[in-house]
Amino acid sequence: MSGTLYGLGLGPGDPELVTLKAARILRQAPVIAYPLAEGTPSFARAIAAPHLPGGQSEIAIGLCMADAREPARAAYDRAAFEIAAHLGAGRDVAALCEGDPFFYGSFMYLFERLAADFAVEIVPGVSSLAATAAAARRPLAARNDTVVVIPAPLPDATIAARIEGATSFAIMKLGRHFARVKALLAELRLIDACIYVERASLPEERILPLAETGNDAPYFAMILGYRGAEPAMQVPRRKAAFA
């Protein structure tokens, strides 16, 4: 019989936020696969490390972080071929994914290549959105509020339109787009309604009102904003990684 492919959501970074089910599969799966950006250790594997028994076969999915899509497609093609060999031989494979597999998760690219031929089980994880709201002590929505999640690489006009149609908004994938997005929110007169959270759940977590930040941010950062009628929340400032 073929093995099962598990898409494991590992949460935002704190290994204690890995679910009991994901931890059990990490201990049992004979093969693990994880994304590996060139030149850096795998964040997904680092989250899983405390739960790994050792001795498992490992498949590192080397990804080029350039804007071009073709190198990433080729990397997932190669990984899917290698994973399929293990599954076909009856070995389960746990594919590690930061956050949640189907919330901007890398696992979806393996799923689209392998789900038609093999058994697949998705184990949801704590998303970066949920972790950021918890760190900021900012409810995402109340009563009839609507929430929109916006990728920072979108054009300014698109971001502004998405914000206009929602009560509560989260802007993620900041990185090199941060200064532009911050300037846009200032132009929209929303900067004082926004909280900045960097590396939620990790020891270097950083939380500030957006107006008090500089113009640099890592990829693992998020802006939470609110345009509704609920009372404003106090921001729990934390500057452990202030730069």
Rank of each mutant, 00 (worst) to 15 (best):
P53K: 02
F103K: 09
A183V: 04
S42Y: 15
G7D: 12
P153V: 04
A130H: 05
R143Q: 10
A157D: 11
G9Y: 10
M65D: 12
P71L: 12
L96V: 12
R69K: 14
A85G: 09
S127M: 10
C97Q: 13
P218I: 00
E164S: 15
A240F: 00
R137Q: 15
D67M: 04
I223K: 00
M1T: 00
F103D: 00
R237H: 01
S106L: 09
G11R: 06
L36A: 12
L87N: 02
C64S: 14
A23N: 10
G105Q: 09
A60V: 08
A22T: 07
A135L: 02
A95D: 05
A157S: 09
D216Q: 14
T19L: 07
F43Y: 09
M1A: 07
G11I: 08
K21G: 08
E121Q: 09
A29C: 09
A29T: 04
A240V: 09
L224V: 11
E38H: 07
A79T: 06
G9Q: 14
P30Y: 01
D192N: 09
G225P: 03
I61P: 07
D77R: 15
A68L: 13
A232H: 07
I207K: 00
Q234W: 00
Y109S: 05
R73T: 14
A229R: 14
I59A: 03
A74F: 13
A157K: 14
P203G: 03
F103E: 03
R69N: 10
P30E: 02
R143D: 15
G175I: 06
H177I: 03
G62T: 09
C64R: 13
T19R: 03
Y34S: 02
I195C: 13
L5E: 12
S201V: 02
D156T: 10
A46E: 15
P203C: 05
E58L: 12
I150D: 05
R206V: 08
L26N: 08
L114Q: 07
V147I: 15
G13P: 08
V126I: 15
S127K: 06
A29Y: 05
V31D: 00
A66F: 03
I191V: 12
V120F: 11
F178G: 04
L5G: 08
G175S: 04
R199Y: 02
Y226I: 11
H86C: 11
T146D: 10
T167S: 15
I25L: 14
A130G: 00
A142S: 06
D117H: 15
V18M: 11
A135M: 02
A23L: 01
P203R: 01
A94R: 01
L52C: 08
A229E: 15
P236E: 14
R189S: 12
L17R: 14
P15R: 02
V126M: 13
L52I: 09
E204A: 13
A74E: 14
L96N: 14
Y6V: 02
A79H: 11
L5H: 13
T213D: 01
L129R: 06
A131L: 04
V148M: 04
A89K: 08
I163V: 10
A46G: 06
A241W: 13
